[in-house]
Amino acid sequence: MSTDQRVLVVDSSGETHEVLQAALARSGVRTYGARRTRRGLALAEEIRPDLIVLDLEVDEAEAEATCFPFAEQSRRNATPLVVLGSVRRVEGGSPLGEFVPKPYDYGPLVRKIEELLARNDECRRRAA
């Protein structure tokens, strides 16, 4: 896995970003945080991350509205999307996306992110 990978974490409390930042820094992954959906989408276009973690701290009705633009964008940019939330089925969920129901453990989540990044990396190298 190359060490210049970038992960964007969108969560309103900033806590998920804080934890993932410390955890992913060990494998040399840089993280970016956004506290609002709008800001997150803009940042995703700007920095073109290798993976997006979307924490749905909102309730069910808002969750779909939040998730949809991210699903669209990640499909367009072929960016894997990891959705953390309490909603099982998200309308318009991206096939590139992974859904992790709350409450989750960080160990498996971090492993999953690293796995996705590695797979992504390999795809890219093969394509090159």
Binding site: E15, T16, E18, V19, A22, Y104, D105
Partner: peptide
């Protein structure tokens, strides 16, 4: 959500 926060802190 609070539990999730505690898990995150504990993980760190």
């Amino acid at each position: 959500n609070i539990l999730q926060g505690i898990r995150g802190g504990s993980y760190l």
